[in-house]
Design a protein around this nucleic acid. Structure first.
Lengths: 105, 105
DNA sequence: TTAATATTTCCATAATATTGGAAATATAGA
DNA sequence: TCTATATTTCCAATATTATGGAAATATTAA
């Protein structure tokens, strides 16, 4: 992963509405949630929601798919795994005694 | 972890210089690296470096300790583990088949 | 005490991000 | 086709963040 991509993903998550959206989608699983449902659950007006969803999508953290009038968003789990791996790369210079593995889910 | 703290940590990491500093400290291990060495290795001027280190410290991602004239910074591994746990909390609504654990280091 | 080194604070400039109303676009169903 | 519903784009106001030179602070060593 290139640093520019990591910074973009972290910036996408570094905002309360977007972090809430992302965590909701992480919980929701691969079936995803429609944009309107996200807006209603989180109390975000349409224009603002659309802006935030575009930011998350561009960063590769969520993926939209169209179903009729609805746009359904789901979390991109593999992209998040890559981001976490990037953050912890070469952790403790390979001294395993210093750092224990973390179970993701 | 409260969402405000997670947003602060993510915002601290969402900047190229700060992400480079953090990853360098993650690699360096618990002994840490002096501020000046960080600035020299990454080509960041003193005032800018100090600003970024303050941001990372306030977010709880790094910890400074003073040794004579030097201020030595080290990564706060446990805070990063908490952040990762927060991001992936209740991942896939508990359906373990959907998401595999990731080894951190 | 004086000089050298390490880091931080101050400050102004410049760049970037957030917000949401209103209008535009797109699909579904009557 | 006409109407209702879902989402996005446009836009301008507002807020936040990044940058680094110069000065201030702090410690060490001579």
């Amino acid at each position: 992963m290139k640093i520019e991509l990591a910074v973009e993903a972290l910036a996408a998550l570094a905002q309360e509405s977007r972090l809430s959206i992302f965590r909701l989608l992480i919980r929701a699983g691969k079936e995803g949630v429609a944009a309107g449902v996200l807006g209603e659950k989180l109390g975000i007006p349409p224009a603002t929601l659309s802006f935030h969803l575009k930011t998350l999508t561009h960063a590769g953290l969520v993926k939209p798919r169209t179903e009729g009038r609805f746009v359904i968003y789901s979390a991109n789990y593999s992209e998040m795994d890559k981001l976490i791996a990037y953050l912890t790369e070469h952790c403790c210079a390979g001294d395993a005694a210093q750092c224990a593995p973390v179970k993701i889910c």
